[in-house]
Nucleic acid binder design. Structure first.
Lengths: 127, 127
DNA sequence: GGAAAAGATTGATGATCGTCGATGCACCGA
DNA sequence: TCGGTGCATCGACGATCATCAATCTTTTCC
């Protein structure tokens, strides 16, 4: 259950068919939960938003620490969690570390949630 | 941060414009994190899936306890979290309590995640 | 009315998480 | 070469969470 060991979002969402068709496997549920857990934190959501909303589409830690109101180690920790989850990418240039959104990362997760609906079953295969 | 106090998903997703436009507010981040946290658990994801995949589109606790491999109080606890989050609805008929997916609940959350992308900004305002 | 069954609630416990201060490491300019 | 800066890592602490056994509540059926 260690967040540090999260895996790229693609591996999670590529796995399972619409959850309404048949139950998700325990293993896939574990992986998906790990990805969702990486997002389920106010500070990390704000970090994602701040990086995405930045004019350059990237931010260094020094740009994020103050507006977030958390210490530098804490911000680095959250950024690491997001990088490990495949949401952000890290690019170290000189002394600075720039973080970017991974294109399509949250996209796949959003798609998966959209498939979980009572009426998401297209074919009335029931008997 | 109490999950028990989660709020319906609609209230979360109706709030904030695409997160790429401007940073999410701390308050909205908190609410959104609470909703995501309700989903970020393997047992709860399996419960959602099992309910959605059931032929009747609903399940009682007794149907869920055994295949999930958890005790009845634990299952009841997870179901309560999901109901409080607005993902499931509870319908007590006689001695049994039947749980259903709330139509469109996860839909709105999925839509929100889809808007968080580097290229989600339509206008190429960057000079 | 009373036994039985389904499910919710309570209390407790072990694990995980978010946060910070202190420290270590890599890089830059003088 | 050396001090300074940006960032990652480590160790610790308090809070939250997932889980279970025990108990309570509600409903059904005799």
């Amino acid at each position: 259950m260690a967040l540090t060991q999260a895996l790229p979002l693609r591996d999670v969402t590529a796995c399972c068919a619409p959850l309404t068709r048949e139950s998700i496997t325990p293993d896939n549920a574990e992986k998906l939960a790990r990805s969702l857990k990486a997002l389920a934190d106010p500070a990390r959501l704000r970090l994602i938003s701040m990086v995405a909303a930045h004019p350059d589409r990237e931010s260094c830690v020094c740009d994020l620490t103050e507006p977030l109101g958390l210490s530098q180690p804490t911000v680095s920790h959250h950024l690491k969690v997001l990088v490990d989850a495949g949401v952000l990418s890290r690019d170290k240039r000189g002394t600075w570390a720039y973080y970017r959104l991974v294109p399509g990362a949250l996209d796949s997760l959003g798609q998966l949630l959209l498939t979980i609906q009572p009426n998401a079953v297209d074919g009335p295969s029931s008997s």
